[in-house]
């Protein structure tokens, strides 16, 4: 028998996490699939579960001077409708799943699932997003890129809950997300790419590049980005082939039922090339 807990506020939830051995379910759109069983049978959870989607405190989106805070049970649809959320993330969400799933699924869930094909992870890595975790012992923040430690592996203790996704407010000259899925809607990515840059007087002040579905986690290389900062846009554009070569070794996709590694790699690098060539 599986016991279901449905806490109505955060304190109650943290207490349950502390006292019991439970799996956390937010929107459930991945959890239900992963634990599916026969039609008209209960979901095949292998442990007790805690449904957090009724916790009002986690449904807020707000900002201060430096960050936008997204509560961990905000639906993707709610995030897409918020005026506070960066366009890059909204554009990404628009390409995720289907409207029905977007009304239930959460951003924190996409993070917690830590799939190599998690679409929202790509812009979130690019935006240097942070994850706020809470337990009855207290609260901590960790960079998303440290939070996700491998395929479906995250840095979350059993008594901890993701409470917020925190996005630094950054302005870019241009930001860009491209999902390459097998069809235009309701599909898991073959690969995805996000790029953003900030120019001041033709000088590159900031440039960020991230790839999804081509390695165990999102590929983002700050060391390579830093080599470009301070150069003029024309200098960067002239380096395009060199830049593509830098990234080549980090794009390590696999063959699976959705695509093959040759395509994933080649198109990822093509999107990078096209992004650099189109810096304006």
């Amino acid at each position: 028998m599986v016991t279901s807990y449905i806490p109505l506020n955060l304190d109650e939830c943290l207490k349950i996490l502390s006292d019991k051995q439970v799996r956390i379910v937010a929107g459930g759109t991945d959890m239900l699939i992963q634990n599916r069983s026969h039609t008209s049978m209960p979901i095949g959870f292998k442990s007790d579960v805690c449904y957090i989607s009724n916790i009002e405190e986690l449904k807020k989106i707000y900002e201060d001077e430096t960050f936008v805070y997204i509560g961990s049970v905000c639906s993707l649809e709610a995030i897409m409708e918020s005026e506070l959320v960066p366009e890059l993330l909204k554009n990404t969400i628009l390409e995720m799943a289907s409207p029905a799933i977007r009304h239930t699924a959460t951003l924190a869930g996409n993070i917690g699932n830590a799939s190599p094909a998690g679409d929202s992870l790509v812009p979130l890595y690019l935006l240097d997003a942070l994850v706020e975790k809470r337990s009855i012992k207290g609260v901590s923040k960790v960079a998303l890129s440290d939070f996700i430690t491998g395929v479906r592996k995250i840095d979350l203790e059993k008594d901890e809950l993701i409470t917020k996704v925190i996005i630094p407010k950054i302005s870019f000259t241009k930001s860009y997300f491209k999902k390459v899925g097998p069809r235009l809607s309701d599909a898991i990515s073959k690969l995805s790419f996000a790029g953003a840059y900030k120019l001041e007087n033709d000088l590159v002040k900031d440039i960020r590049i991230a790839f999804g579905s081509v390695n165990v986690t999102v590929v983002r290389r700050r060391d390579l980005e830093e080599r470009l900062i301070g150069k003029t846009k024309d200098e960067v554009k002239k380096m395009v082939s060199e830049i593509v070569d830098w990234y080549e070794e980090f794009i390590k996709p696999i063959d699976d039922q959705r695509s093959n590694k040759e395509y994933r790699k080649s198109i990822s690098l093509k999107l990078l090339r096209s992004f650099i060539e189109n810096i304006e």
Binding site: I33, S98, P182, R183, L184, S185, A187, I188, Q257, R258
Partner: peptide, 16 residues
């Protein structure tokens, strides 16, 4: 069969 569900077997949506 490698594409054994409607996630992996891609039929067109209205968008396509």
């Amino acid at each position: 069969i490698m594409q054994k569900n409607m996630t992996d077997y891609i039929i067109p949506t209205a968008m396509d």
